[in-house]
Structure formats: structure tokens, C-alpha cells
Design a protein around this nucleic acid. Structure first.
Length: 664
DNA sequence: CAGTGAGCGAGCTTCCGCTTGACTT
């Protein structure tokens, strides 16, 4: 082993790729993320001393750290090549702090895993950027203060085992607010009038009533619609204006984590967790015959739409060859990146254009094929020319009534040749001329009702969080898992519905901690972290500014929130007193209100009898490490279990705990 | 992945963000 230096990266896959590129020069090992963190079982922040963090080795990570230390001692030269973002800088710094002083330690930074980028990075190593590390520490400590002060408050005031945090509680807020909007929504009836018309050749098309005189047509009920229809019938329609335009539909950016999760949900009905699981398997490598295991996609946790130059060159060559030059723009398409993006990685794309979905299909399972196909096509299409539509809009007058008709035809498919655009209408209009007289063949009044916004799905929640800069690519899936596991929200046919507990927790936090619950709280925090990174602000100062009012709110909440008792109609069969609902380790149960004098406790029945023949028990909602399910009250005599309540009232039915509710 | 539990309440839970594995609590 005469490799001269040690290189530390975060992921094992990256270590493998780097080994190929750097040949035998370096020993490369992955840290697998953070090794050092605040302790799990205590606050780990000395507030009095000025928010000094207490760092400990994360349990289970000592093997890796020991190995890194040993290798560093041998090599004497260490390159920290952790991801080029705040967290990566901190991971590198924590490792550096644990290495022997005899070693020389350098930081290298690259944003794409290509030979040119990597070789360049090693030519110009730098020192650890302490401003960046400080920004990470501020973020970490703030999250710890919020989470480890608010959660115990909830234990005390509501129930054991609950949690609150900067990210999860705002996610919960979005879901509960939407639910309240839906509850408060009153559907409004409205009508529209469609007309089937014929041109001079007798070809039919549909037009919609838009205006009456100068006013927008607003029809409230059937009587109005019918009387208008009678009036319209008396008139003779003609084409009063006709406009023809070309409309371009530009391709979508290649995937980031959030857009991948959204499209995989919309097109494949994959849950967020499933998308990440399948993407991880494509990233880690798949045996595709001749070459041995090959990583088929780039890193799947990213907020960037950037693409390595080499990949652009090869996809452009591919487009020209496979589709022709009219599908290739003169210059590569460049996509806007969100301001909040840290861009430590590229967009999610296939690692090699040669690995077309068809050629690797037989080596992948069904889910991998579907997701890989989506990623592959999205990437190719992102560097193609726009689709072009011909749009014809006609105004049609019939007395004081004005109708509108639009025809939309695809005249050049462009990127949509390989990437399907959902929700595009392609109405055809027959040829029409200005002043052409038309014949009215049919009037179709239609009844409609205004609808509330739908509940959040997993993917629309991720979209909303990302737009607000809340959470990171690596946490979108875990956030959903957390709020479901706490029983704050439940999945209902792929949509997220808050539980009573969810409302209760959210309302309490909103009342006493409006600042933390502010949707913009994270955005403000990010601005301040930027200032720390730029050396304009101190970690201490930011934390103190947050903590002083936070502590006051906390003390006020401690003193003023009363723990409420939830009474029931149930009577204790031992002492006759009413029973109340309590939360234990395993969820809700009925307790005698005279506890601890009377220690009677019972399970809460769903009221549904056990479907097992001759059993006669009733079903009870149970909670295990893996989620919720229904079991029989006669357990262990009757071992009936079910995910769903065997009844048609699906509204309150439990869906899935982790992933499969929308994916099967 | 599939199947999950057996009393629950004075001895514990919890955050966000990086990254995968699986020695037995």
C-alpha cells in the first residue's frame, strides 16, 4: 500500500467512483454522513456559557472514525472531500478535530463527479471554512433548542412521546390549515353554457359563452341558464374575430429530489419513500451484464438542476443522432436554480446516455424500470427544443352574446416526443373565417360547483415545503414519516389528513409559539445563516436573538397551558366513575378518572365487531413499531389483524404506515 | 419486505441533517 494520502468522502458510491478516477494515488474512504453530533439524550447545549455545543461520537460510528484515525496516522496527508455544502463542511471539520495533530489536513471541493472537476479540485485544495461550519452549528443548535424544549412541553401538556420541530411543525401547520379551509368551504353553484356550432361546411365545434354585452357571463342557477339559452336561440351567430398564434412549450428542467418525488407520484403513484428507495438502488449500482455493477443515475438527494459539461456534450450528440438537428437547440438549455439551493450535487440524471431504458430493462425490476425511464427521458428532453402549438382563438357574436372557441394543434413535437406533457388540451377547430355566418346546432347548459383546494398529497406537501425553503432533499421523506408516526396526520387514499391530535398539537404551538410556526421562519433563519457564512454575524448573536423571546414564550406556556382531560361516556366497571382517554407508550387507552386509586384500564374499541366467525370480539386500533393496524379484543385467542377497518365507511379507515398506500 | 400485539400510568419519549447497514440490546 503505497498510496500517498487519505481522501474522505461521504457516500460509499462516491468513494468507488473516485477510486476509478484517482487511480492508485489515494486511499479513499466514506464517512457515511455525520460522525459527530449533539448527544441524543440531553440538550447538549450550554446556554449560559454562550450556546456551547457538546459534541459526542454518534453511536455506531466509532468503527469508521477509528479507521479514519488509523489511516490518517499512516498517510500523514488527508484530503477532506466531503460534500461542498454547509453540512459537508461541518462533517469535514468534525473529522479534522478528531485527527492526530501530526497529519496535514486539506479541504477539496468539487460539484460534479467527473475527472476534470475532481482533478482540478485536488490542484487547489483549501482550508476548512470556519464561517460555513459556524453557520451549520447555528442551524444545528437552533433546531436542537426548538425540538428539545418544545417536545417535552407537549409531553407535559398533551401526551407522552410527541414531538415538535422547526420543520415538522410547520409541515403539520400546512396540512391542518388546508383541512380547516376544506371544512369551512361552502360550494357555490354556477353554470356555464356551451354551444355546438357549425361552420359553413357543416363542420361542428364547441364554443363557450364568455360575455353578455361588456360583462363577463356569470350564471348562478338553472333558471338563469335556461332563460339565457332561450334568448341565445333567437340570435344568429357569426365569427367576429379570429386570431392565430404560435405557442411554445419549453421542456422541464432535469430532476431534483423534490421534482422527482412529485413526478413519480403524479405519473407512477409512487410514495415519496418508495421513490427514494428505488432511486437509491439505481444510484448504488446494478449488474447490467458485461460491466459488473454500474450506478445508473447520479446522486438522488440534490437541490440543483445543474448538469456536468461532459453530460451535456453527450446528450446533445445523442439528440442530434437519434432525433435530428431540429430537436437540438443551438445552445444547451440552462435552468434557473432556486436561491435557497446549496448545489452540492448535480441534477438527477442517467450516468451514461448509452444506458437507454430498453437496453437495461431486463436487469431491472418493474419499479426500477419505471423510475429509471422517467429520469432518463426527463434528462434527454431537458436538452431538446420546445414543442410548438398552433393556437387559433375565435370570438363569436350572437346578438349581445359573445362566445369563445380555441383550437390547439401540435405542429412540432420537440421535447414532448419523448416526455409526455400531462394536462395539455389539444382541441381541434375546423377552418373559420372572419364574419363567417355560423349555425347554432345545440346549447348545453352545465351545472358546476366551486371546489375547495384538495388536501396535500405527500408530493404536493414536498413541493410546498421546498417552495418555502423548509427541509432539505435528504429530509423530505423522513418529515412525512415523522408526522404520520406521531399520528398527527394519516394517509387517506394518498392524501394527508390531520388527526384530532394533530390539530391539538398544532393549535397549541400556534397560540404560544407563533414565531416558530411562521412559514417564513426558516427563510429568515437561512438569511441569518448566510450572514454567518459571510462573516457578518456571530453564531452566538443569532442564537441569543432567537432564544431570549423563545425562553419567555416557553415559560409563559409552561405556566398557562392546562393539561386537559378528555372525558368519555364510558363508565368504569370497577368503581362506576367516568373513564378518560390517556396516551401511553402504545397509543390511546381508557383509564378510570380516579387513577391511581382505581387502576382500571381498557382498550378503546372501534365499535366494529371482529369478522372472524364465532369470535364475537371487537376490533381495537393497535400501534406497533411499524405503524397502525387493527387487532381483535380477544387476542391472543383470536389473532385477527387487518390494516383497514372491514367496513364501507372508508373515511376513517387507516391506510398505510410507510410506503405502499399509493404505490401498489 | 411482511406482519405487527399480550398492558398501557414514576421512568421514559424529542430536533434536523448527513449517510447506509443489519455484531444484538
Amino acid at each position: 500500500m503505497d498510496k500517498s494520502a487519505l481522501v474522505i468522502v461521504e457516500s460509499p458510491t462516491k468513494a468507488k467512483t473516485l477510486t476509478k478516477i484517482l487511480g492508485d494515488k489515494f486511499e479513499i474512504i466514506p464517512s457515511m454522513g455525520h460522525l459527530i453530533d449533539l448527544p441524543k439524550t440531553s440538550l447538549g447545549v450550554d446556554i449560559e456559557a454562550g450556546f456551547v455545543p457538546e459534541y459526542v461520537l454518534i453511536s455506531g460510528r466509532s468503527k469508521i472514525l477509528t479507521q479514519i484515525k488509523k489511516l490518517a496516522k499512516e498517510k500523514k496527508l488527508v484530503y477532506l472531500a466531503t460534500d461542498p455544502d454547509r453540512e459537508g463542511e461541518a462533517i469535514g471539520w468534525h473529522i479534522k478535530e478528531n485527527l492526530p495533530k501530526t497529519a496535514t489536513i486539506k479541504r477539496v471541493e468539487f460539484h460534479e463527479i467527473t475527472p476534470s472537476a475532481i482533478n482540478q479540485a485536488f490542484k487547489e485544495p483549501r482550508e476548512i471554512d470556519m464561517d460555513m461550519v459556524n453557520a451549520q452549528q447555528a442551524r444545528r443548535i437552533l433546531d436542537r433548542l426548538v425540538g428539545y424544549f418544545l417536545s417535552p412541553l407537549l409531553w407535559k401538556k398533551i401526551a407522552r412521546g410527541l414531538s415538535a420541530g422547526r420543520v415538522q411543525s410547520v409541515a403539520l401547520r400546512l396540512i391542518t390549515e388546508r383541512e380547516r379551509e376544506i371544512e369551512a368551504f361552502k360550494p357555490q353553484e354556477y353554470w356555464d353554457i356551451e354551444a355546438e356550432m357549425l361552420n359553413k361546411n357543416g363542420e361542428s365545434f364547441n364554443a363557450k359563452l364568455e360575455k353578455i354585452g361588456d360583462k363577463k357571463a356569470e350564471i348562478k342557477n338553472q333558471a338563469e341558464a335556461e332563460s339565457l339559452a332561450e334568448e341565445i336561440k333567437k340570435e344568429t351567430p357569426f365569427v367576429s374575430a379570429i386570431v392565430q398564434k404560435e405557442q411554445r412549450r419549453y421542456p422541464f428542467a432535469p430532476f431534483t429530489t423534490s421534482t422527482l418525488q412529485q413526478e413519480a407520484f403524479n405519473k407512477l403513484r409512487f410514495s415519496v419513500a418508495k421513490t427514494m428507495r428505488v432511486a437509491q438502488s439505481l444510484y448504488e449500482g446494478i449488474d447490467i451484464g458485461t460491466e459488473g455493477p454500474v450506478g445508473l443515475i447520479t446522486y438522488m438527494r440534490t437541490d440543483s438542476t445543474k448538469v456536468a459539461k461532459e453530460a451535456i456534450t453527450s446528450v446533445r450528440a445523442h439528440i442530434k443522432k437519434a432525433f435530428g438537428k431540429e430537436y437540438l437547440p443551438d445552445e444547451p438549455n440552462v435552468y434557473k436554480v432556486k436561491k435557497s439551493a446549496q448545489e452540492a450535487h448535480e441534477a438527477i440524471r442517467p450516468t451514461a446516455i448509452e444506458h437507454a431504458p430498453e437496453t437495461v430493462a431486463s436487469f431491472l425490476d418493474e419499479d426500477q424500470n419505471k423510475l429509471y425511464g422517467l429520469i432518463y427521458k426527463r434528462f434527454i428532453s431537458s436538452q431538446m427544443t420546445p414543442s410548438i402549438f398552433k393556437v387559433v382563438s375565435a370570438d363569436i357574436h350572437a346578438g349581445k352574446f359573445q362566445f369563445g372557441a380555441t383550437g390547439r394543434t401540435l405542429i412540432f413535437d420537440g421535447f414532448s416526443r419523448i416526455y409526455e406533457i400531462t394536462g395539455e388540451d389539444k382541441n381541434k377547430l375546423p377552418p373559420l373565417e372572419k364574419n363567417e355566418a355560423l349555425k347554432l346546432s345545440k346549447l348545453i347548459p352545465g351545472q358546476h360547483f366551486t371546489k375547495p383546494k384538495p388536501r396535500y398529497s405527500e408530493s404536493s406537501l414536498v413541493k410546498a415545503l421546498e417552495e418555502e425553503g423548509i427541509g432539505r432533499p435528504s429530509t423530505y421523506a423522513p418529515i412525512i414519516y415523522t408526522i404520520v408516526m406521531r399520528d398527527y396526520v394519516r394517509r387517506l387514499k394518498g392524501y394527508l389528513k390531520p388527526t384530532e391530535l394533530g390539530f391539538k398539537v398544532c393549535d397549541l404551538l400556534l397560540e404560544y409559539f407563533p414565531k416558530v410556526m411562521d412559514i417564513k421562519f426558516t427563510a429568515h433563519m437561512e438569511e441569518e445563516l448566510d450572514e454567518i457564512e459571510e462573516g457578518k454575524m456571530k453564531t452566538n448573536q443569532i442564537l441569543q436573538e432567537f432564544y431570549t423571546p423563545f425562553k419567555e414564550s416557553l415559560e409563559y406556556a409552561q405556566a398557562n397551558i392546562k393539561k386537559e382531560v378528555i372525558t368519555t361516556d364510558e363508565i368504569c366497571d370497577k368503581c362506576g366513575k367516568p373513564m378518560i382517554i390517556k396516551w401511553g407508550r402504545k397509543g390511546k387507552f381508557l383509564s378510570c378518572s380516579d387513577y391511581p386509586t382505581c387502576k382500571n384500564a381498557k382498550s378503546i374499541s372501534t365499535g366494529v365487531t371482529c369478522p372472524e366467525p364465532g369470535c364475537g370480539g371487537y376490533l381495537i386500533e393497535r400501534r406497533s413499531k411499524r405503524g397502525f393496524f387493527f387487532g381483535c379484543s380477544n387476542f391472543p385467542k383470536c389473532r385477527f389483524t387487518s390494516r383497514k377497518l372491514p367496513t364501507e365507511s372508508s373515511e376513517e379507515t387507516k391506510e398505510d404506515d410507510e410506503s405502499s398506500s399509493v404505490s401498489e
